[in-house]
Simulated assay, not measured.
Amino acid sequence: MAQQRELDGSRHPERHRTDRVGWLRAAVLGANDGIVSTASLLVGVAAAEADHGAVMLAGAAGLVAGAMSMAAGEYVSVSSQADTERADLARERQELADDAAAELAELTGIYVNRGLEPSLAQEVALQLTRHDALGAHARDELGITASLKARPVQAALTSAAMFSIGAALPLATASLLPASRIAAVVSLTSLLFLGVLGGLSARAGGAQVHTAVVRVTVWGAMAMAATALIGVLLGVGP
């Protein structure tokens, strides 16, 4: 009985994070891009000595355009991945129908390469084939699993929503400041926002918090510094 409980996992429950990969990647990418691109845009326009209205207009336009761009980009790219997955599964389904014995041998070889004895590998391959041949080949030959399966709509909506939230943070900050202080204050607060985002995403994914925080803040600082330089060089002020 104790052994059975161990086999069904009741005595050793585990929580893994790979099922979060799809939406977490899109969420982090969207929020990070929202903060960095909008803050950089605000800083660049403010550094050019534009008035407050022009700075806010640029930021609002950047938010809308960026959210739509993120949604379209994620949908197209993840749809391409989904199309490839469907094509591979269709080909694998046809190969199973045409030569099941060769596919069984191929699956056996995969398990042998992973460390199983040939006889055990063949038995595992045979049982998995009887249970779900296509599922076994999708998982062990093609690397396609339910948790990592491409979901274009989910990626697009998540990325667009998180971009909008990320972009709203520096935009809201800028709305409370005079034009002369936008560049400095938005830069500092946006780096803080990026640090918090990096820490939260690392915690959600089980990664090192320090590494994630440093990574996002360094790249964000570089982006804002570059756009500030462009604003100063091409300034519209007197």
Rank of each mutant, 00 (worst) to 15 (best):
R91S: 12
R91C: 00
E92S: 13
L96T: 09
A97H: 10
A97Y: 01
D98N: 10
A102M: 10
A102S: 13
E103W: 08
E103I: 11
L104M: 07
A105S: 13
A105P: 00
L107S: 06
T108K: 11
I110H: 09
Y111F: 15
N113T: 12
N113D: 15
G115V: 06
L116Y: 14
L116A: 12
L116V: 04
E117V: 07
P118C: 02
S119D: 15
E123Q: 15
V124M: 12
A125I: 08
A125K: 03
Q127N: 12
H131P: 00
D132F: 03
L134Q: 10
A136I: 05
H137V: 04
A138E: 10
A138K: 02
A138P: 08
A138R: 06
R139C: 03
R139T: 13
D140M: 02
D140E: 14
L142T: 08
L148E: 11
A150N: 06
R151C: 05
R151P: 05
P152Y: 04
P152W: 07
P152Q: 09
Q154V: 14
A155P: 09
A155L: 02
L157Y: 00
T158P: 07
S159Y: 02
S159K: 01
S159A: 14
A160I: 06
M162C: 14
M162R: 00
F163G: 10
S164T: 15
G166Y: 06
A167I: 12
A167W: 02
L169F: 11
L169E: 01
P170E: 05
A172N: 01
T173D: 05
T173N: 04
L176T: 14
L177I: 11
P178G: 09
S180M: 00
S180H: 03
I182H: 06
A183P: 09
